[in-house]
Structure formats: C-alpha cells, structure tokens
Design a protein around this nucleic acid. Structure first.
Length: 564
RNA sequence: GGCCCGUUGGUCAAGCGGUUCAAGACGCUAGCCUCUCACGCUGGAAACAUGGGUUCGAUUCCCGUACGGGUCACCA
C-alpha cells in the first residue's frame, strides 16, 4: 500500500476516532514529581484471588514508589471478559489493604466499597479506556505499522470453542511455525479493496502490529533485576486489538503505562519473552520505554521433589488462606521482605523495633532466581514477631481473629479478658520472651487447658511410676499448698514432697546417682502438671496454678486422684 | 522443539579473581541451662551442578553440557 492508502485505511477502520495522540498527551500531561520519584503500579486482571507470588511484585512496586516519594497506583486489566470473575477486583483491593498495601491512585474503593477512579490519569479500568486505545490504533494504521485481519462471525465463534492450550501442546513446532509465518505473510498482503469489501459485508476485524524486527538480530536491554539481557528482535505481528475492539495486554500496557507515567514496570518473569514486543510498541508509538523489573517466580516442591511454580491450588497460594490460618499480616510482610531483599533479615535483626517500611529497599539486593516457599521460615518469623508483642496486643489480635474463625474460643476469651491477658503475660516482655505460637490457630492448643471447656487429660503418667506415689504426691501437694507462697516457697514444698517419697529433690544429686532414688523432682512436678494441665508440657506450673486459682487447681487434682 | 532466564548446604542466601575452599538465618542435630515446655547459650552434620577455557590464581569472567523454570493465544 501507498502512504496515502494507510490514511484511507485508518479512516475506514476507525471512522469514529477523531482525537489524535497529541490530544491524549494534552489530556494526560507528564507528572510533576521530584527528581528520582518512581511511579509504579499493580495491574492485575480480576480473575481470582491475590496469589502469594503476586505479593513479590506488589510489595516491590509499593516500596519503590513510596520510598522514593513517587506514586503507586492500581490499574485493573479487565480486557478479557471471558475470564473475569465478578467482585474479584474489589476482593483484590481489600486483601492487599489487609497487608498494608495502599494505592495513591487508581481504581480503588470508595466509601461504599465500590470501585471508583481516584486520580487524574483515569479511567483506571482498561475496559473503560477503549477510545484511548483506538486513537493510537488509528495512528499506527495511518503510519503503516498495523493492519487489520478480517474474520467472519462464524469463524470467531468456532475459535472460542477450541482449547488453545491443548492445541499448542499437541502441535508440531516446526510445522506450526512455518504455517504461522505463511499465514502472517498472507494476512499482511491485504489490499484496500479487500478491506472495503469485508467492511461492507459487516465482518469484524482484529488489528495486528506490523513487526519490523528480525529474530536473527539481538536486542540488548537491561532489566533492573535480571541484568543485561539479549533477546531476539520481535518479528511476530502481535494482535493489538481483538475483534471486539478491546486491546490485548501488550497494546494496553504500552499505551497505559506511557499515559499514566509509569517509570518502572514491575512484573513476574513470565513476561520476559514479550519484552521485545513491548519495546517495539513503545518505539512505534513514539513513547519512551519504562524501566523493567522482572521478578522471579515463587516456587514449591512437588511430589517428585522438583521445583514447580506455586500454583493456585497449592496451600498457601491464596493470600486469604493466611488470615484464616491466623497468620498476622505483618509476619507475612516480613517473610516477603526476607525473600525480596537478601539483606532485610540482617537489617531487621539490627532494628528489631522498626517496621519493614523503614527498611531501605534496594533493587540491587533482589534475587534473579526463583525461590522456594518455606512455611518453616514463615513460622519462625511469625513466632519472633508475636514474641515482641505485649499481652494486650496478643489478646486484641487473637480475639479479632477468633471472632471470625472460632467464635466459641472468642467468647471464652472475652468473658474474662484479665485471665486471658494473664496467660499471655507468661514469659513475655523480657529479653528472651517465650515463643510458643506464631499463628492464632495455634494458640488454643497452647493455652486451651486454662479453660475447663478445653481441658482434658492428653498425656498420662507412665506406668513406670507407682500409682501410690502419684496419689501421695497429689495429696501432699494439696495439704501444703498455700496460694500466698512465692515461687520459691512453692517449689520448696514440691521438693519436700519429692524427698518425702524417695525422689531426688536436687537434680544434680539425682544425675550423680540415679539408682539412689525412685525418681526426681521433675517427675513429681510432672504428676502435678498432668493433673493440672492434662499434659507433660506447659508453661511454669506455679504461674499456671495462680491463673487457674486454687479451686480449679484442686478440683483437677482431685479428679486425677479419683481416676487412679 | 525454538527462544529466554536461572543453578553456593534440605530451604533463603553472603560472596562480587586471591587472609571466605565459603558468613548468617530457617530446618535438622548433640550438649548445657532447667520442675516439663518455650526461650537462651555452646557445638555439629550439610553447598559453590558439570566439562573446557581465560588467568600466576576462579565459587567469582567466557563457552559448551546437564538440570530446573518461563514462553511460543484475538489470556493476562
């Protein structure tokens, strides 16, 4: 086609488009931001929940923007109506908010929980930006950089039926490639007359980019995470607009990120293969390309022991799972930070009281390779975080969680807040706080025995100990117990019982000659512990008894004694 | 299959040509502390995928191989 023909073609294809790229530039002027301020975004398609892997780019983007005094915005990429799940976008926003991720602008929630535009660069939902894309589409056609491909409605419907993924998997790659190249040549050769004919017949068209690349040649670019990259030039005529006039991701990415002033595009590394195409689009459109950061995928170990992408169905993939299990958002954030920035842990150890948002996030410290999801590590971080909380904070956090996921437990806790807080105060506050639980769902197992509703005998005193000794211990303890005793006096009495029954009161003496005793004071304590807590393991018995009170303590001792 | 990315102990990782032939954290483990547990403390096992270059010298640079991952849609 001739130059003039392209202009005719553009008018034929987009008769309704009257605005020009210049108009767009006026409507969306460059942002006025201080030097070095980064503009980043999160651009999800509303097709499901927030994935743990998604937290990596999101957190990175949020940190980079806010740390630099820039803008972090939300753009909803709802260009595929087929896959869209109603309400997913709203859910995405509330989930992220729960993890402290807030947007400065974009399609965010208003007071009524509805998505509404917030900011001067909207609309922020791509489905609402049709006219904007069409301005640039028309421009590309005018310049001979894009061309239409026509199909009939029947063909379109047929296409919707086939399982494309399965088709790709099954095909012979060489054959498919050759066919594709041939098809591309054929489609490129469309004439103005054919276009008029098709248009007259009312057939829909989709728009393809006319790629000028040569895959034999390499394109050199720098990814801020991956470093220097050498990729073949793009020679595929990617689809820009679909038959319904809605842009594909690629086209929308170039137009939106330019117009919205994105400085850093942060996304998963699955986008790496299309960077050549994206750079071509920016060049065609006359836009300056943003800086790219492709973040490695989060992996998991499959049954065969090989690394696999953490998929939707995996435990821990859905960010909402963590809330249900009782993970505190702050802990998850910290875990994400340790994976994202290799020196975060070190920094945090030196600044245990600072929030992760105070950490100087560095792109240089990001790993280029994918990491394995490690629940152990998350658990450890969680325990450490919670161990620094006050009893009051633990109480509030636990109650809030229990009220949603374990109302029975919540009722018990709130019925006697002082008791609950006294339990949480055990071993808390010092230099070396206890670390008994990292998630709320573990707490009941740790402290349930304090409540008659959950108290039960889980461990039994081994048969190796004479029942008579156990009975004697329980009876003697009751006889000598005085709630007013301090811890030392209390333990002295336990020791006295041990001595009385022929058990060693002094552990060193016992270890020196175990055969001289029937057992030791640890055994005597164990009898009491099983009686009072129902188990072998519990926090300091003296404190436990005081929280329970004399009546409950004695009642439990009596119950065990009676069962012997 | 083509293309791209990656590869230090089980995991996350420091290292960025030579006092590190390898730090730290999680996990595992021995012991100490100790009335049990939870802490804490002191130890331990455990790694530079592989071959070939470059170099006086490579975990660190280059190439090949293997392995892992990603991608090749009118999905994002």
């Amino acid at each position: 086609m001739e130059l003039q023909d392209f202009i005719t073609l553009a008018d034929l294809l987009f008769p309704h488009v009257t605005e020009t790229p210049e108009d767009m530039e006026k409507r969306f002027p460059p942002r006025q931001l201080p030097e070095g301020a980064k503009v980043t975004r999160f651009a999800p398609s509303p097709t499901g929940f927030v994935h743990f892997g998604g937290m990596f780019p999101v957190t990175t983007a949020e940190r980079l923007a806010h740390q630099s005094g820039g803008i972090f915005y939300l753009r909803i990429e709802d260009t595929d109506a087929q896959r869209e799940i109603p309400g997913a976008a709203e859910k995405l926003i509330t989930t992220l908010a729960a993890y402290g991720i807030h947007f400065d602008e974009g399609a965010i929630l208003d007071e009524n929980g509805k998505i509404a535009d917030h900011g001067a660069y909207g609309p922020y939902k791509q489905s609402l930006r049709g006219p904007i894309y069409h301005v640039y589409a028309k421009q590309l056609v005018r310049e001979g950089k894009a061309y239409p491909v026509f199909t009939t409605r029947e063909e379109l419907e047929q296409m919707a039926q086939v399982d494309k993924k399965a088709a790709i998997k099954a095909k012979d790659w060489h054959e498919a490639e050759a066919a594709q190249r041939e098809e591309q040549q054929r489609q490129r050769a469309i004439t103005l007359d054919e276009v008029k004919e098709q248009l007259a017949a009312g057939n829909p068209f989709y728009l393809r980019l006319l790629a000028d690349g040569n895959a034999e040649k390499k394109l050199i670019l720098t990814d801020l995470v991956k470093g220097k990259l050498e990729i073949p030039e793009n020679e595929e005529d990617a689809v820009l607009l679909k038959s319904d006039g809605i842009p594909t991701y690629h086209f929308a990415h170039a137009v939106d990120d330019h117009l919205m002033g994105t400085t850093h595009v942060i996304r998963g590394e699955e986008w790496l293969p299309s960077v050549a195409l994206h750079l071509m689009l920016f060049r065609y459109l006359g836009f300056r390309a943003p800086k790219y950061m492709h973040i490695a995928q989060l992996m998991k170990l499959d049954e065969n022991g090989s690394k696999k992408k953490l998929s939707k169905r995996d435990m821990g993939a859905n960010m909402d799972d963590y809330k249900q299990l009782g993970y505190v958002a702050e802990c998850v954030n910290e875990y994400v930070m340790t994976l994202l920035n290799s020196n975060y842990e070190e920094w945090h150890m030196q600044n245990p009281d600072k929030a992760y948002t105070d950490f100087p996030f560095s792109i240089k410290k990001m790993s280029a390779s994918g990491c394995l999801f490690d629940l152990n590590k998350l658990g450890d971080i969680s325990k450490n975080v919670l161990s620094r909380w006050t009893a009051e904070q633990i109480y509030d956090g636990l109650v809030a969680w229990a009220q949603e996921y374990d109302t029975e437990f919540a009722a018990l806790l709130t019925a006697d807040p002082d008791k609950a807080k006294a339990i949480f105060a055990i071993g808390r506050g010092g230099k070396k706080p206890r670390k008994d639980f990292g998630i709320w769902s573990e707490v009941k197992g740790y402290m349930g025995f304090f409540y008659d509703e959950y108290y039960r005998i889980e461990d039994t005193i081994p048969e190796t100990f004479s029942r008579e000794d156990v009975k004697a211990t329980l009876a003697a303890f009751k006889a000598s117990y005085d709630e007013a005793d301090d811890m030392n006096a209390w333990f002295d009495k336990v020791k006295a019982i041990a001595t009385e029954l022929g058990y060693a009161a002094d552990m060193k003496a016992y270890k020196a000659d175990p055969t001289a005793f029937k057992g030791n004071v640890a055994d005597i304590s164990m009898f009491l512990r099983v009686a009072v807590t129902g188990r072998f393991n519990a926090p300091d018995l003296y404190t436990v008894m005081h929280i329970l009170g004399k009546d409950t303590t004695f009642a439990r001792i009596d119950a065990l004694a009676a069962s012997l």
